[in-house]
Lab assay of single mutants.
Amino acid sequence: DEFHFHWNGRDIRVRGDSEELRRLIEAIKRGELSEEEIERAIEILER
């Protein structure tokens, strides 16, 4: 699976399928994380 979302003017695409990944992306979409937490998560996910 590939998750695709927009954040902070960026087009983010992440491959993978796990419950943890889904929860993280939902939290990002709901605005539950700080900008710094989101940046760090995206860096890890894009590897």
Rank of each mutant, 00 (worst) to 15 (best):
D1M: 09
D1N: 12
D1P: 12
E2Y: 10
E2M: 05
E2P: 04
E2I: 09
F3G: 02
F3Y: 13
F3P: 03
H4L: 06
H4D: 04
H4Y: 07
H4S: 07
F5A: 00
F5V: 01
F5E: 00
F5W: 05
F5H: 00
H6I: 09
H6T: 08
H6C: 06
H6F: 09
W7E: 00
W7A: 01
W7V: 02
N8V: 02
N8L: 04
G9P: 00
G9R: 01
G9N: 05
G9E: 02
R10Y: 01
R10W: 00
R10Q: 03
R10F: 01
R10D: 01
R10E: 02
R10L: 03
D11F: 15
I12S: 00
I12G: 00
I12K: 00
R13K: 14
R13Y: 15
R13C: 06
R13I: 15
R13L: 14
V14R: 00
V14K: 00
V14G: 04
V14H: 02
V14M: 05
V14Q: 01
V14F: 11
R15W: 13
R15M: 11
R15A: 11
R15E: 10
G16P: 09
G16N: 05
G16D: 04
G16V: 14
D17N: 12
D17A: 08
D17S: 10
D17I: 06
S18V: 08
S18T: 14
S18W: 07
S18F: 07
E19P: 14
E19H: 12
E19G: 07
E19A: 14
E20Q: 13
E20C: 13
E20D: 11
L21Y: 12
L21E: 06
L21P: 02
L21V: 10
R22Y: 15
R22P: 02
R22C: 03
R23T: 09
R23M: 12
R23S: 10
R23K: 08
L24Y: 04
L24C: 03
L24R: 01
L24S: 01
I25P: 00
I25S: 04
I25F: 15
I25M: 13
E26R: 15
E26M: 15
E26Y: 14
E26W: 14
E26G: 13
E26N: 15
A27F: 14
A27H: 07
I28G: 01
I28A: 03
K29E: 09
K29C: 04
K29H: 10
K29Y: 15
R30T: 09
G31K: 08
G31E: 05
E32L: 12
E32H: 10
E32K: 08
E32Q: 11
L33K: 04
L33Y: 07
L33P: 03
L33C: 04
L33S: 04
S34L: 06
S34M: 09
S34G: 07
S34D: 09
S34E: 05
E35I: 11
E35Y: 13
E35N: 14
E35C: 06
E36Q: 13
E36S: 12
E36I: 13
E36D: 11
E36G: 09
E36P: 11
E36R: 10
E37L: 06
E37Q: 12
E37R: 04
I38N: 02
I38W: 04
I38H: 02
I38C: 03
I38V: 11
E39F: 11
R40M: 09
R40Y: 12
A41M: 09
A41Y: 07
A41V: 10
A41I: 14
I42E: 01
I42Y: 04
I42K: 01
I42N: 01
I42T: 02
I42F: 04
I42C: 02
I42G: 01
E43D: 12
I44T: 11
I44C: 06
L45Q: 02
L45M: 08
L45K: 01
L45W: 10
L45A: 03
E46H: 06
E46A: 08
R47Q: 12
R47D: 14
R47W: 07
R47N: 13
R47A: 13
